[in-house]
Simulated assay, not measured.
Amino acid sequence: MTIKAIAFDLDGTIVDSIPDLSNAANHARAHLGMEPLAAKIIESYVGDGADVMVARSLANDMSAVYTGTPQQQEGLAAFDAHYLEHLHVNTRFYEGVEPVLRALKQRGYPLALVTNKAERYTLPLIERLGARELFDVVVGGDTLATRKPDAGPLLHAASQFGIAPAELLMVGDSKNDALTARNAGCPVYLVPHGYADPRQFDCDRVLRDTAELLELLPVTPASAA
């Protein structure tokens, strides 16, 4: 396996955003006269974009989909207004992740951020985290016509880097990340600290921790060798 670039998921992979996401989702529920949900429940609804997360949170049902009902639209608007104002109150890098990103960047690996989080949330969040300069390519949930688990976001990132999909490593935490990589023909490693047990998903490796990437990947990427 020759790796020339690396794509990272955002929520559950490099940052823990559940405190701020759950507060925004519960703000939407309160706006509609509903009782709050436990953060752990909302955590299970994350990964398919804000619209789907809000639909699931309002219904308190993992199978709920966003169809644009008046209630869903009102809830999404309430979520959006609150979350944009509170993107970075409690959201932080997982321990040890930022140094790994910087070390990979220093080694010469091009890095992409591939997330289902909309650009209007993703870009200001990584700016506030001081991480915008780490990513050569950012693909949000609304950057393209499709989002994960469709292959499009990873194929787009590989195209931007001028490499084959098989040369782009996906690092994520979820079923969506694993499926996206398989659909695109990319290798995929999953981290152990995300929002689901990665051992249940089809991946090439479950990492001990993010720092294991520095042990597994060559000091110099193949493209620069």
Results as ranks from 00 to 15, higher is better:
T2R: 15
L58C: 07
T115P: 05
K148P: 02
V65L: 13
P187F: 08
A181M: 09
L125A: 06
L113M: 10
A225D: 11
Y121A: 06
V138Y: 10
R120D: 03
A157I: 05
K4D: 13
A30M: 11
D16P: 09
V219T: 15
V100L: 08
A145F: 07
M53F: 10
S57H: 00
G108Q: 08
E127H: 08
E35R: 11
L37Y: 00
A184M: 09
G194K: 00
T122R: 10
A118G: 00
P218V: 13
A38K: 12
D202Y: 07
L58E: 06
E119S: 13
T69P: 11
I6G: 07
P36S: 01
H27P: 01
D197R: 10
I14F: 05
R120M: 11
D197W: 07
M53P: 08
V15K: 04
E212M: 07
V206N: 00
A78C: 01
A81I: 14
P70F: 07
D136P: 08
G96P: 12
A59Q: 04
T210N: 09
L129D: 01
D142Q: 03
L101H: 03
T2L: 13
I6L: 11
Y94E: 07
Q200N: 02
N116W: 06
Y94M: 05
A81P: 04
A157D: 06
E98P: 00
A103Y: 04
S223M: 10
R29I: 05
T210G: 03
D61I: 05
T210A: 15
P198C: 08
T180M: 14
K105E: 13
A158W: 01
H88N: 13
N116C: 09
P218K: 12
A211R: 11
S44G: 15
N116P: 08
I14R: 00
I18E: 03
L134N: 06
T146S: 14
E35S: 12
A184E: 00
R56T: 05
A64M: 11
R199C: 12
V46Q: 04
L207H: 06
G33P: 06
S159P: 02
L101G: 03
S63D: 15
S223A: 15
N183R: 12
G75A: 10
G108R: 05
L113Y: 12
Q200L: 12
L168A: 01
G49T: 01
A78Q: 03
H156Y: 15
M62V: 15
V54Y: 00
L168D: 04
Y66D: 10
I126T: 03
M1E: 12
T143Q: 03
Q71D: 04
E127Y: 00
P187Q: 06
I42Y: 08
R132S: 14
I42C: 04
I18M: 05
A77Y: 06
D9W: 07
T143S: 15
H86S: 10
H31E: 14
G141V: 11
V52Y: 09
L179Q: 15
A157S: 07
G140L: 09
A39G: 02
R56K: 14
A157C: 04
L76W: 10
